[in-house]
Design a protein around this nucleic acid. Sequence first.
RNA 1: GGGUGGUUACCCAAGCGGUCAAAGGGGCCAGACUGUAAAUCUGGUGGCACUGCCUUCGCAGGUUCGAAUCCUGCACCACCCA
Length: 405
Amino acid sequence: MRPAAEQLDLLRRGIDAITPEAEFVKKLEASARTGTPLRVKYGIDPTGIDVHLGHTVPLRKLRQFQDLGHTAVIIIGDYTALVGDPSGRSDHRAGLTKEQVEANARDYLAQVGKIVDLSRAEVRHNGDWFSRWTFLDVLDLTRRMTIGQVSAREDFALRLKSEKPVYLSECLYPLMQGWDSVEIRADVELGGTEQLFNLLVARDLQQDEGQPPQVAMTMPILVGTDGKQRMGKSLGNYIGVSEPPETQFGKVMSIPDEPMRQYFTLLTDLPMAEIDAMLAPGVNPRDAKEVLGKTIVSQYHGPEAAEAAAAAFRRRAAGEDPEEIPEVPVPRDQFDADGRITMPRLIVALKLDSSTSNARRVIEQGGVTIGPDRTPVTDPKAPIAVPDGLIVRVGKRKIARVRRS
RNA sequence: GGGUGGUUACCCAAGCGGUCAAAGGGGCCAGACUGUAAAUCUGGUGGCACUGCCUUCGCAGGUUCGAAUCCUGCACCACCCA
């Protein structure tokens, strides 16, 4: 195991705060001295199925702990998911059913495995203990915190003030999450900055149970591809770890310039000096973004796929057709007696658009071309003869080859 | 249990008897430009056999020549009082 100071240096990258930092240093030192791994907890609620780059920020940190010889403990919050985490929410989140939660949990782990080494990690479900609780146990837990403590939280206070509902079950959430730490005897817990309150509740509970309290390590919230709001599925500004390489790469290229530093710091292992050099004034941000895109994509799809995605992107930016043009069968009955068809119908048949109305509009805006010489299509009503193998382009990104069948 | 306000297109949100397929913003799509699927600007954004037709304003009825707009009932949401 590496010396504590060295570990601390590595672990500090990209974090927001360590609370309390002095305690963390002591834990690290004791761990290095005795060769005892720290137990590092990260909890996720299986509420959706897409793990995105925002989730990977703490997950990558967890992996970093693993690589330094510590023990990763992943909590699948199958019971907390039934409540819904109120953190950072301006309205309450509906709880899920048990069936949904179980299916989601499986999906989640498959995706988390791309970042964390699951063969070396402990995976626990908090239903393992909560499902056995009696109402008395619940009551006992609720005695550990006051309404005042709960309502002091900014997210709750805001909701109370704006007359939005705050459910009693939501107040239980931090206590449940905290109890997880007691069950697994956590030394460190990772989470986003908005998790600080929840992470600190565990400290009190652990102390009550005679355990050394955990240290809270909070990570910045990754901003989404819009460069404004936090990355999130519901906001549609996310990059999913399971998305295809081209999509991931394209989405990275579409982020504004400002969040690039954050992305580099939190999502790559490139040395900070190298990052600074790329983001220096006078350097074309597009080139830095390309490095960023390739680095991120190769984490999930490998370096070859990342290169290919970058090449495909460049080709498209240069206005060239992609290497592989998908062939789409168009049934005979779509054509009239003379073997012709109007352009909107062809576009829908090729699945390049979902409605003829919309296809018509795109044509009227000059967004549709056909054939190798890119002849623009201007009249949405005129039937045209369609030779087998005709290439149809809609906008900059959608393309297909007609396969008459 | 009582009261009040609300439910409009992908989202937010105007409209309160006809000129409403329904203002505005966001998002999304297309075009121009470029440093890229950044930024900026322009146009578009229910469907279709498209100068017309059909379906949409929580649900079901009703009044009217005519309803997103008025009436009745129902459902759901929020807040206030208890």
